[in-house]
Write a protein that binds this DNA or RNA. Structure first.
Lengths: 341, 341
DNA sequence: ATCGTGCATGACAGCGCTGTCATCCGTCAA
DNA sequence: TTGACGGATGACAGCGCTGTCATGCACGAT
């Protein structure tokens, strides 16, 4: 049953290269500590034998792994897959590898995964958001590896944070809508996770700052976001607030759905209805009319998170408690060109 | 520098539970071999001490890991993130974990990653596609763990395969377009990976079977797929083949771009231009007009791949060489309702 | 000639766990 | 009562690698 497919070991390489095992180990970990000739022989022996180090043995012996743990709510969400992409780009030229865990937006699952990840003594941990359970926060605070919270920047990072202010982004978008002459902007939200909550708060703040005292035009649902949900949310909104003349959507999927629903209802965009999304996925600019959105640098967040971890290992980089704001950019396109008439 | 954040070990649990270490190990691996009382004490001790097993030590001692290696070209592609989602759902109720590697469509990177993954003695390997380099194929064939090729079913799987025939899917879509009265269907393709090539071949076969001898209306590009690329490809197509009255798109992103570009050009869909995508992402049904597509069960592929690996470990499941066809479904929607007039 | 210094290398032990075999004990058939 | 048997538990060694020290050597300073 347990057929041993003979793995070449470090010792076998050592024999072939006529050095001791420890020298082979050094040639791999810190080549500069090994003489050029020895290194040469070892390199050849490794190639000849097709040797690949055993990460488990290395981890056990050294007490550390080259693994970066990544905790995100879900992989089937454009936002997180962009972040993940950035993370992979960040580790590309290193020996690091990624251990991905998905929490499904459950704090309990998150806590469990943190425990599992920490048991592997990772090189670093990247977690999405700032809403860890108290126990999870404690675990992370006591972890002896860099911990980077991504997606948003909060008041006090556990260790490091990279993200943006979703509140500010939504407020800017709201100001933009008002600026363009929309008089009754609404907010549509799905999957109301903490970041969505913050966007909603930013929307309300934007309305408040403009001195509008009208009704609170907000339609949200805990359902996961999707394009078809965008269609339904617009229908809901118009049923409840027929006067709404612009929507700030929690994310771009909803915005696309809103666009399609508006087309079905012959509501001219942007003349009768302004539409603004959040994240600025690639499709937004290609839509007809092109859809406005708040651009966020998701790829950069992932890459930067890895960068911070690597800096920390190099002894440089920002100190504990540093939050890096990657900001956002308002991409004003035709879908929010303003009311006509 | 190297502060030892004291990890509780299995031996400490053993002391606390007043049993030998090996019994604790057994209580974790195969609880039925341990008496109820001992199990009870051990469980409590584990909880009290917050013990988490060290996977590296376990891997080293047992010669295996509970890791499933997953090799996909890219994470920032809806198709693969759906598959990944399925994989995570597949392992949800097990002790398995996922090790993800992205090849960026490079056979060399793939080969390297296969080597790295195999060095961890994984419980299984899931690789996208059938186009491994000869060396990679050999590695996989000799791996002593189940290997599942996903995305498509080919002539001879290395071990197991789960997927669908992209050729048949595209042929069915082409037949559908012709069926609905479109006389000059074209094919638009981006990121012409092997699966896209197969779809193109299926398109041509569909045309051939219908006895059309017209020009080969095909526009492809090696660029990665995107919505805006769909816009550009339609522009290209119309410049070269103004008579084209329907497009089969390599994937749904392109189809969406085509729809937007058609709107910009005031080409009525489906009257003047039929549009069909591939994969049937959620947005297709929500579009206006709703877009036809070939539905593929990407989530199911991931789940099934894991299922096969778990079956194999249980000693059941299909034998080496089995290819599981998950099929496809033509979702005919308004975007291919046919020419008018 | 003597010593210290720095570099390249090696010996040794052990990381935390599990495979293998051995041991122990209670139970039941003869 | 005896022996066989099976279930529960334990002792031992070792997985492949690296941390820690120790060693050997060539070199220049004294």
């Amino acid at each position: 049953m347990m057929e041993k497919s003979r793995k070449t070991t470090l010792s076998e390489v050592a024999v072939a290269a006529n050095v001791s095992p420890i020298t082979v180990s050094r040639a791999l970990r810190s080549p500069e500590k090994v003489s050029a000739e020895a290194r040469e022989r070892i390199t050849r022996a490794i190639a000849d034998l097709g040797y690949v180090p055993d990460p488990a043995a290395r981890a056990l012996a050294s007490g550390r792994t080259d693994v970066v743990g990544v905790l995100i709510p879900s992989v089937s969400n454009n936002v997180f897959s962009d972040v993940l992409h950035g993370i992979y780009d960040g580790i590309a030229d290193s020996t690091l590898s990624v251990q991905l865990g998905t929490t499904g937006y459950s704090p309990l699952a998150e806590e469990r995964l943190i425990r599992v990840f920490l048991s592997q003594r990772p090189s670093g941990l990247i977690v999405a958001g700032h809403e860890q359970s108290p126990a999870a926060r404690r675990l992370l605070a006591e972890a002896n590896c860099p911990v980077v919270q991504i997606m948003e920047i909060g008041p006090q990072p556990i260790d490091l944070a990279v993200g943006l202010s979703h509140f500010d982004g939504a407020r800017a978008a709201t100001a933009h809508l008002l600026d363009r002459g929309y008089r009754a902007p609404a907010f549509l939200g799905a999957q109301m996770d903490p970041r969505s909550q913050r966007r909603l708060a930013g929307f309300r703040e934007g309305i408040r700052l403009a001195g509008r005292d009208g009704p609170d035009r907000v339609v949200t649902t805990p359902e996961p976001s999707s394009v078809s949900l965008g269609c339904r949310l617009l229908a809901d909104l118009l049923a409840r607030h027929p006067e709404a003349d612009a929507v700030l959507c929690n994310n771009d999927d909803l915005a696309l759905g809103v666009l399609f629903e508006a087309m079905r209802r012959n509501l001219p965009v942007p003349d009768r209805l302004g539409i603004c999304g959040f994240n600025d996925l690639e499709m937004m600019a290609a839509a007809q009319p092109p859809l406005s959105s708040i651009a966020t640098d998701r790829h950069g967040m992932g890459r930067m998170a890895v960068h911070l971890i690597r800096q920390r290992h190099g002894g440089t980089g920002p100190a504990r408690g540093h939050a890096l704001d990657l900001g956002f950019a308002l991409r004003a396109r035709e879908s929010t060109a303003g009311r006509r008439g």
